[in-house]
Design a binder for these strands. Structure first.
Length: 225
DNA sequence: GCCCAGGAGCCCG
DNA sequence: CGGGCTCATGGG
């Protein structure tokens, strides 16, 4: 039975099609990198979406833009309490307002160009040193903003992979990431798509209460009933 | 009303 | 090093 990570990817891609995530689905064909504005917005989005549905994040991003707060300068100059009001819809708004201020300072210190040109290990370590940026947020920023070939692990990824039997329930973030990465070609566009497909699959079928009967992965899943 | 969202920091053994 | 707690709003 071929239940490698790439095989799972192929099944999901065939079933759901390209997800066109974050953002600008065709960027890979049109351009080599994003604009600074796009990168910055992705970084803000990565903070706001921590443990939060994206629909709630969109409202918060919209409010930030409406109040001209979607720039590094504006985040630095606007009071934290004010930002907290703007991003209220994304939840944890006080925490996230503080994190936006910290990230803005970080982006003031290190320019987007400087970060873009770092090698992956250096960039990841630097991002992780920022309070409020953990492993998933760091990897999301690297993958979606800086287009580095790094695989983002999230709760969905771990749920699906552990149910299938490709990792154990208590495997760490880095372990699962290494396992997937070592079994797939390092390719930014594929990593981007794969992560989006896992999210889609988890929402539709591999939920907390899984819908195993109709799941397209049931043939390769250990947890099939 | 309950459950869950594209987590991370902190504290504690 | 790993488990438990906290942070908070909106949609199903």
């Amino acid at each position: 039975m071929n239940s490698s990570f790439f095989h799972i990817y192929a099944i999901l891609l065939k079933e759901y099609g390209p997800q066109g995530w974050w953002p600008i689905g065709t960027v890979y064909r049109k351009r080599l990198s994003l604009t600074n504005d796009e990168k910055f917005e992705i970084i803000v989005g990565a903070i706001l979406t921590q443990n939060t549905a994206w629909t709630n994040v969109e409202k918060a991003l919209h409010e930030l833009r409406r109040n001209n707060c979607l720039t590094i300068k504006a985040l630095l100059e606007t009071k934290q309490e004010t930002l907290a009001q703007y991003i209220k819809s994304s939840g944890y708004n006080n925490q996230k307002a503080e994190r936006l201020k910290i990230v803005a300072q970080f982006l003031f210190q290190y320019s987007l160009e400087e970060l873009q040109n770092m090698d992956m290990k250096e960039l990841r370590a630097l991002l992780l040193s920022v309070k409020g940026i953990g492993p998933e947020t760091a990897d999301s920023i690297m993958l979606y903003a800086f287009m580095k070939p790094i695989f983002v692990i999230d709760a969905y990824t771990k749920r699906i992979m552990s149910r299938i039997g490709l990792c154990s329930k208590d495997s760490s973030y880095d372990e699962l990431q290494a396992a997937i990465t070592h079994n797939m070609e390092k390719d930014t566009e594929n990593y981007n798509e794969y992560h989006a497909l896992l999210v889609e699959h988890a929402k539709r079928y591999c939920r907390t209460k899984p819908l195993c009967e109709e799941c397209v992965l049931k043939e390769v899943c250990m947890k099939r009933m």
